[in-house]
Amino acid sequence: MTTLSLHNPASVVGPLVSPVRGSFDWLIEAYQASPRFLDLPAATRRSYAGVLRRVANYELKDGRRFGSLPLASITPGAADQIYAKLKIRPDGSKRLRSAMLSMRVCQRAWSVAQRRYSSEMPALNPFAKMGISYRPTPTRPVTYAELIRFVAMADRLGDHSIGTAAMLAYFWLQRQVDILERLSWEHYRPADAPGIVRIFHHKTHEMIDIPLVDTDGSPLWPEMCERLDHTCRRGPLIIMRDRPDRLRKSYLPWREDYFRHRVADIRAAAGIDSEVKFMGLRHGGNTEGADADLSDAQLRALSGHRTASMVVTYARTSMQQRRDGARKRRDARENLLE
């Protein structure tokens, strides 16, 4: 059994030349060149690449990197050892979710490479059937009052776009990646349907039309529409950085890491609980809908969460359900302010 000794992974540099065929480094290269990897979203590819690099850069007691090991020498016991080391941070705290993800990605990479190079790969996948599980911490929903505080602080700090992004997540239940990378001005009041906004959900591949006005002409999302109608258009995307890039002298889209750090800064400045995450805004919007007594069908029609059977059942009345759901949510917010 291969014995592992945990050193600082960040200090270990991967191979600068082509990996030895049949090594774990070679497996990573084969997986990252496969359609199964290349077809993943860019953020997922970055995450998986980082995970595999971390595993490959773990150092053995004899000084070798884990990535240099021949695949035939990597046993289930070695996989168990590296999982045990990955799940403990240097300060002794646990990071079970990250460690489990590492094992799942290694399992996937091994399986993909095995299908392509079956004659060169061991039959046993040592990362399979490890019997590990993780119960995620529930995401705390952001309340409407917290949303108002967050947006006010974002505006005060000159981060208008982040306040707008928070409102988009809360009101129209869109995920961060879709808000930052996909939501364009063409989706808001499109020429062919100026009374709607088109919201895309990459997880379900749903593009849903959300009505902006009720049947009597009253606005269903007055706060959101007023915000967008007074937002400067700095590019094709609705959410662009609020200051020109120092080098390019132009406004750029937000990068995920920079956006996350600014969200944390604004949250702290607003005095909001540090456990509150951006994804909690979407959860908060869904919670508002449930508290406003939306039916399950109305919630799903607004959020884009629909099973195959529900598509057949509810597709014909989805626009009316979205209008009814939007009205109930608007009325519930107005009642809070009375």
Rank of each mutant, 00 (worst) to 15 (best):
G163P: 03
T137R: 06
R227T: 11
I74L: 06
Q32H: 08
V276Q: 09
T3A: 07
L183I: 11
S303E: 04
R233E: 03
L147G: 02
E186F: 05
I132G: 00
R64A: 14
R233I: 10
V177W: 00
V51M: 03
A42M: 08
S295N: 01
R243K: 14
A128N: 07
A191R: 12
R248G: 04
G50I: 02
D39I: 12
L336N: 07
R246A: 13
S98G: 09
M279R: 13
D331T: 15
S318H: 14
A315V: 12
S318R: 13
A268S: 12
L6G: 09
Q320W: 08
P122M: 12
P141M: 08
P70D: 10
R115N: 15
Y188S: 12
E120N: 14
I239F: 00
G284Q: 05
R53W: 09
G285C: 00
S184Q: 13
A326T: 08
G92W: 01
H201V: 14
L69V: 11
R248Y: 05
D265I: 13
L52Y: 05
D242L: 00
L40C: 08
G325C: 08
A123N: 11
A191F: 02
L147K: 04
Q176P: 00
Y314S: 08
E256Q: 15
W254K: 14
S11K: 13
